[in-house]
Computed example of a mutant assay.
Amino acid sequence: MKKLLLIIGIFLLLTSTARSQQDKRRPRVPSITVNGEAMISAEPDQAQIDIGVITQARSAPEASKENAERLSRVLTEVKKLLGKSDEVKTSGYSLTPNYRYPQGGKPEIVGYTASNTVRIKTNTLDLVGRLIDGAMQAGANNVNRLVFTLKDEQGAQLEALRQASAKAKSKAEAVAASLGLKIMRIAAINEGERTIQPIYRQVMAARGEALAAQAPTPVEPGTVDVRSTVSLTAEVSEK
């Protein structure tokens, strides 16, 4: 048995050595490596808004009850405006004590704060300003997130990737031509970093200005930036 294992080991060693020598004798094909990057701007077709109600009271039940009543009015108003494909769901709830810290004494509970936040997702961007105004008039007092994004993020990413690959190929051809070479084949292409930058908007400040001017809350979606990078290696030869 030991002799058999020894023979197998010697055979594998000789095979590996022979393969290594063949690789060394094989001529290396010259190649160039370039990077390609593309960024596209897409019109957003979806908005997400976090609208909340924050209430304070002496006791936890009072703070919770007032919060629930106000949020119910907010949801009733919001759902009047939303379409069938739009969504509303709770994104956060908390009920926490408020403390007073007397000098030299122990902390004392002086009340409670209830906070309830719902996330609204709508595909009708023209509704965003009306949703915010309607919710605030119904009792909401916090809008802490407004994001414009894409429903089909993958489609935008693939388009950015296609453009990045095309730019990398053009760059490789330009480099080869400047050296008096030509592209023989694409040896490798690797996807690099890809990002989607949604659009975040500050709402409370804009609403404050709108109230002062007795106007609807202004909302400008802007565009979503989608970025993709690739690394391309091409084998080259003389023309």
Rank of each mutant, 00 (worst) to 15 (best):
F11Y: 13
N123S: 07
S170L: 14
G111P: 08
P107E: 03
G180A: 12
L158K: 15
V203T: 05
A212H: 02
L161Q: 15
I7A: 15
E87A: 07
I199W: 03
E108K: 05
P216T: 05
S91Q: 12
G52Q: 03
T217W: 03
K106Q: 09
L12C: 10
N35D: 05
R100K: 12
L5F: 13
A206L: 09
Q48N: 03
A205T: 06
I32K: 02
S165F: 09
L12S: 09
E209K: 09
L82V: 12
P97D: 11
I186C: 10
M39H: 02
N123I: 04
T217S: 04
R25E: 01
P30A: 04
G139H: 08
R227Q: 04
S20Q: 12
E191D: 11
G36M: 01
Q22H: 07
Q202I: 06
R25Q: 02
P107V: 06
I10C: 13
G139I: 03
Q22A: 12
A57Q: 08
Q103G: 08
G155D: 14
S231K: 07
M1D: 09
L146S: 08
L158D: 15
K24D: 00
K89C: 01
Q214L: 03
T195F: 07
L13H: 02
S41A: 09
L82S: 15
D225L: 05
P198L: 03
T55A: 10
D126V: 01
S85Y: 11
Q202M: 09
L12Q: 03
V230C: 04
L75S: 12
A42T: 03
Q22W: 08
R194E: 14
S16K: 02
A156R: 11
I183Q: 09
A140K: 08
A210M: 07
E66G: 14
L161C: 07
E108C: 02
A210L: 06
A213V: 00
R73N: 15
A234G: 00
L95T: 03
S231V: 04
S165Q: 14
V74P: 12
I32T: 00
I10R: 08
K3C: 06
S59G: 10
G180R: 09
N67D: 13
A140T: 07
A63K: 10
K121C: 06
L81E: 05
E193P: 01
E66I: 06
L95Y: 11
I7H: 11
T55S: 13
D50F: 06
G139T: 06
S31F: 02
Q56K: 10
L146Y: 12
L75H: 06
K65R: 14
S91H: 09
G155N: 11
K121E: 14
L127N: 00
I8L: 15
T149A: 08
T233L: 01
A135E: 07
V230L: 04
E153C: 01
R19D: 08
K239E: 10
V128F: 08
P221M: 02
V118E: 13
T33L: 05
V29Y: 00
S85P: 01
E193V: 13
Q157T: 15
K167L: 08
A205H: 00
S94K: 09
Q137T: 09
D86C: 11
S115I: 07
I186Q: 15
V118L: 07
A212G: 06
L12D: 00
T229Y: 01
S20A: 14
G139P: 03
L75C: 11
A47M: 05
M39C: 00
A174I: 08
R201Y: 02
L6S: 13
A168R: 10
V88S: 05
L211N: 05
A164I: 15
